[in-house]
C-alpha cells in the first residue's frame, strides 16, 4: 500500500522508438551536411572515418543562389499565406452570415474544388500566364496558390464562424456597422484561431510545393526548385543537398513554433458571455 505509483514502462519505450524513427532522417541529414561527401557515400551511419567539415555549408552558398531562393520562397509562401488569411474569412463571413441567392450551390462548388487535382490546371494556366506575360513572375504561382486554398480555407473558417456569437454581429449592426465594418472590426479580431490555422497550413503547403514554381518560374525560383538543381545530373552533391534541405525546413519549423499558441488559444477568447 505504501508503494508510490509507478507508471508502466512500455509507453515510454514506445514513445522513444517512435521519436527515434522521426528523428533518424534528421540526424542523417545533419551528419551528411557536416562530412565530406566521400565519407557518407556508403551511408551516413558509416563512421569508419569521421571528418568534421563545414565545406558543404560554405560551398552551397557560393555555388548556388541560395539567398535569392530563400527570399523568393519567403515572398511566395508569405504572400500566398497572407492572401488566404485575408480572403478566406471574407468568403466565410459571406457564407456564414449573409443571405444571397445560390448560396448553397456556390458553397458546394467552392468546397468541391478541393477534389480537383492541381495537375488539371497546369496547361490552361501556363497558356494564360504566357499570354499575359506572367511567366517567371512570382504572382504566377501566388495567384493559383491562393485560389486553390480557398476550397479548404473558406470551409475551415466558415465552420468556425457558424458558432460565432450571433449577438456580437447584431450588436455591431446596432452600433452602426455595415457588413464590411462588422467583418473588419468585430469578426476578424475574434477569428484569429482559424486564421492562424489557415496561415500555417497554407505556408507549409506553398513553401514545400515544387510543381507550379518549377513550371512557371525560370530565374525567380524558390528553395525546393533550387534543391532539384543542386542535385546535378552527374554529381549527386549529397552534402550540399543536405545543407539546402536543412535551410529549407528550418523556416516553416520556426513559423509553426511561433504560431502554435494561437491553436491553443482556441475558443476561450470568444464571447463576452460568462462561461
Amino acid at each position: 500500500m505504501n508503494d508510490i505509483y509507478k507508471p508502466p514502462l512500455w509507453p515510454m519505450l514506445l514513445i522513444g522508438v517512435v521519436s527515434l524513427i522521426w528523428v533518424l532522417p534528421l540526424i542523417g541529414i545533419i551528419m551528411t551536411s557536416i562530412r565530406p561527401e566521400g565519407e557518407t557515400l556508403k551511408g551516413w551511419w558509416n563512421i569508419e572515418e569521421f571528418t568534421l567539415t563545414l565545406e558543404a555549408w560554405r560551398e552551397v552558398w557560393v555555388n548556388y543562389p541560395l539567398w535569392d531562393a530563400l527570399w523568393n520562397s519567403i515572398k511566395i509562401a508569405g504572400l500566398s499565406s497572407l492572401g488566404s488569411i485575408l480572403l478566406a474569412p471574407m468568403g466565410a463571413y459571406a457564407f456564414a452570415f449573409l443571405n444571397f441567392p445560390g448560396k448553397k450551390v456556390t458553397f458546394l462548388l467552392l468546397v468541391n474544388a478541393f477534389v480537383i487535382p492541381n495537375q488539371i490546371l497546369i496547361i490552361p494556366l501556363f497558356t494564360l500566364w504566357r499570354n499575359v506575360g506572367l511567366i517567371d513572375n512570382i504572382f504566377s504561382v501566388i495567384i493559383p496558390f491562393v485560389a486553390l486554398s480557398m476550397a479548404w480555407a473558406v470551409f475551415l473558417v466558415r465552420n468556425y464562424l457558424v458558432d460565432f456569437p450571433r449577438s456580437l454581429i447584431d450588436a455591431a449592426h446596432i452600433d452602426g456597422c455595415g457588413h464590411v465594418r462588422t467583418f473588419w472590426s468585430v469578426v476578424l479580431p475574434n477569428a484569429l484561431t482559424p486564421m492562424a490555422a489557415v496561415g500555417i497550413l497554407q505556408f507549409m503547403w506553398t513553401w514545400n510545393s515544387l510543381m507550379l514554381p518549377m513550371l512557371f518560374l525560370r530565374e525567380n525560383i524558390p528553395l525546393p526548385v533550387l534543391l532539384t538543381k543542386i542535385k546535378g545530373t552527374y554529381e549527386p552533391n549529397w552534402d550540399q543537398v543536405a545543407v539546402a534541405t536543412i535551410i529549407t525546413s528550418v523556416i516553416p519549423l520556426l513559423i509553426f513554433l511561433y504560431f502554435q499558441k494561437y491553436f491553443a488559444a482556441g475558443a476561450s477568447n470568444q464571447s463576452g458571455q460568462k462561461g
Binding site: P165, S167, L168, D170, A171, H173, I174, D175, N190, G272
Partner: peptide, 28 residues
C-alpha cells in the same frame, strides 16, 4: 438599425471580447 434612433441590450450582453470596456462603450 443605426438610422432608427434605437439601441439594444442583449441577453448575453454581446460585449466585444477583444475591446476594453472603454472601447466597448465608445464603439458606436
Amino acid at each position: 438599425p443605426k438610422d432608427r434612433g434605437i439601441s439594444m441590450v442583449f441577453q448575453d450582453y454581446a460585449l466585444y471580447p477583444h475591446m476594453t470596456v472603454r472601447k466597448n462603450l465608445g464603439f458606436g
